[in-house]
Each structure stands twice: as structure tokens, then as C-alpha cells.
């Protein structure tokens, strides 16, 4: 009798905990649903052809679009990625393949430190190192700041994936008499390709959503420009400016900017996956 009661209590407790876990899960994901839902509904309502084909209008005038910010985002983010890729992948390979290299321990610690560093500090440093000496804000400076954000993420992701590649592949390659560099380039990196791409996408998404480091690097520009040595507009920056403004039409466009920014990130990751999957 007593044992039975005890057992029933244990079962109840089990069910109660399941309920609590369920509530926790729902809470954890609730805000995501709300944010994405509002962004989708308000964003779609605000999207039109002008948004992609026209530049922004002066405040208080309705209409216009954010062509200049969309183009700017693609250029600044793409350039940032190009700057970050070689450094990040090289550093990741070093950490995974040369554990005894004297640079390995400090690079690992510093990559983690950089990764945990607030993005705004990276913008601050780029302002001092690039904007001031160049005498102008520029899309390039913004790209460096974003690259700064991507490098440590790519490094650690690459390292993580490379260590998962089976030892046997390395041994087989070396047994064939291939030098170490050839094993890394032709066997290990291709084997880890999918994982590396995932890491790169993650890094790209993190950086593409940042506005803080662009405030004083890429700066913004109401006109379309494709010259990375000129100040450039980006969607996160414009979204921030529009969101805090009092103009209803800018609020509308802020939602659209949010949606397009998110779509660009998703698109870039789909493209990267497709490009690396199809050819090999």
C-alpha cells in the first residue's frame, strides 16, 4: 500500500517535470516565434518593388526604398567574409593539425577571447586603426570590423570539424607517401568541407546581423555607392536609424529591412551549402 503510493507519487513527479520542461521549451521558443512572426507580417506588408530599386528618401517624405543599403550590405558582408576566410581557416587548421606548434595554445585562447568580445569593441578598434588614418569612413572599414567578428568563429568551427575527421584518413595519406601539407589540403579539408561551411555560415550570420561595429566604420550613406573606399550603407545600420525615428514610413521600412536582412542571411547560407555540395 505504502509502496504503491510512493510509486504513484514518483510517477506524478515525473509527469510534473515533463510539464515543466514543456513549459520551459515553449517559453524559450516563444519570443522567437513572436519576433519572426511580427517581422514576417509587418515586413511583407511593407515590401514592394521600390524597396529594392530606389534609394532612401529624405525624412518626412514617404516612399523610396533601401537599394543602397541592400547593395552595401552585400558588399560589406562579402568583403568581410573574403578577409576572414583565409585567416580563420588557416588558424583552424593550425589548431587541429599542428597541436605541438608553439603558436597553437595562445591562438586558441585568443580566438576564444576574441569570440567573446563585444562586437562594438571591434568597431572601436577599426575606427582607430583604419578610419582615422584613411581620413574617411568606408565600406572597407566596415568589412574589416565584420571580418574581425567572423575570424574567431571560423577558426574554432574549423578546428572542431577537423578534429572529427578520422585518424585513418591522415594515416592512409601519409602511408601513400604524401607530405603533410598535401594530406591537409587534399584529404582532410575536403573531408571536413560540410562542417567548415556550416561554421562559416554561422560566422557570416553573426556578423551580418551586427549594427554596432558599423556605426563608426561603414557609417551609412543615403546614396548608392559601390566604391568600398566610400562610406557605405548597410541594412542593420539603416534599420537601427529607422526604428528609433518618429516617422511612420520609416518604421514600415524598418520592418521590411529586418525581413530582407534575415532573408539575405538565409539565402547566403543556402547558396554556400548548394555551391559546396553540388560540385563534389
Amino acid at each position: 500500500m505504502n509502496r504503491d503510493l510512493n510509486l504513484r507519487r514518483r510517477y506524478w513527479r515525473d509527469r510534473l517535470m515533463l510539464l515543466l520542461l514543456g513549459i520551459g521549451t515553449v517559453l524559450a521558443l516563444l519570443v522567437l516565434f513572436l519576433v519572426m512572426g511580427y517581422a514576417l507580417v509587418n515586413g511583407v506588408a511593407a515590401l514592394n518593388w521600390d524597396f529594392f530599386t530606389k534609394d532612401m528618401k529624405p525624412p518626412g517624405e514617404t516612399g523610396g526604398g533601401l537599394r543602397q543599403a541592400i547593395v552595401g550590405t552585400i558588399i560589406v558582408d562579402g568583403l568581410g567574409l573574403l578577409l576572414a576566410l583565409p585567416i580563420g581557416i588557416a588558424a583552424g587548421s593550425l589548431l587541429a593539425e599542428y597541436p605541438d606548434h608553439p603558436l597553437t595554445p595562445p591562438i586558441r585562447t585568443l580566438a576564444d577571447t576574441l569570440n567573446g568580445m563585444p562586437a562594438i569593441l571591434k568597431g572601436l578598434v577599426v575606427f582607430v586603426l583604419i578610419v582615422k588614418p584613411m581620413g574617411t569612413f568606408s565600406g572597407f572599414a566596415g568589412a574589416v570590423a565584420l571580418g574581425f567578428i567572423m575570424v574567431p568563429i571560423i577558426t574554432r568551427a574549423t578546428e572542431g570539424v577537423l578534429t572529427l575527421v578520422p585518424k585513418e584518413i591522415r594515416e592512409a595519406g601519409l602511408a601513400l607517401g604524401l607530405p603533410r601539407w598535401r594530406v591537409i589540403l587534399s584529404l582532410i579539408l575536403p573531408a571536413a568541407r560540410a562542417g567548415i561551411v556550416t561554421g562559416v555560415i554561422l560566422a557570416f550570420a553573426r556578423a551580418a546581423g551586427e549594427a554596432a561595429p558599423l556605426l563608426f566604420t561603414s557609417f551609412g550613406n543615403p546614396f548608392l555607392t559601390t566604391d568600398p573606399l566610400k562610406p557605405m550603407d548597410t541594412l542593420p545600420l539603416r534599420l537601427f536609424q529607422f526604428a528609433i525615428s518618429p516617422y511612420a514610413d520609416w518604421h514600415r521600412q524598418a520592418w521590411a529591412a529586418g525581413l530582407v536582412l534575415f532573408a539575405l542571411i538565409v539565402l547566403a547560407s543556402a547558396l554556400a551549402r548548394w555551391a559546396t555540395r553540388r560540385r563534389l
Binding site: P86, I87, A90, A91, S93, L94, L95, Y98, H101, L103, P106, I107, L110, A111, T113, L114, M117, L121, K122, L124, V125, V128, L129, F148, V151, P152, T155, P179, R180, W181, I184
Partner: peptide
């Protein structure tokens, strides 16, 4: 190869040190 890879990788090192120093 290891020198080249170490040179590129030290980009991470340089970035972190530059950041700390500038701040």
C-alpha cells in the same frame, strides 16, 4: 606550408593583441 599557415593564423594573434593594446 607550416610557416604560411602559421603566418595566416597569427592574424588571430595580431587582432587580439592590437585590440587589447588599442583599448
Amino acid at each position: 606550408f607550416s610557416v604560411i599557415i602559421a603566418l595566416l593564423a597569427s592574424g588571430v594573434l595580431i587582432l587580439a593583441v592590437l585590440m587589447a593594446w588599442e583599448l
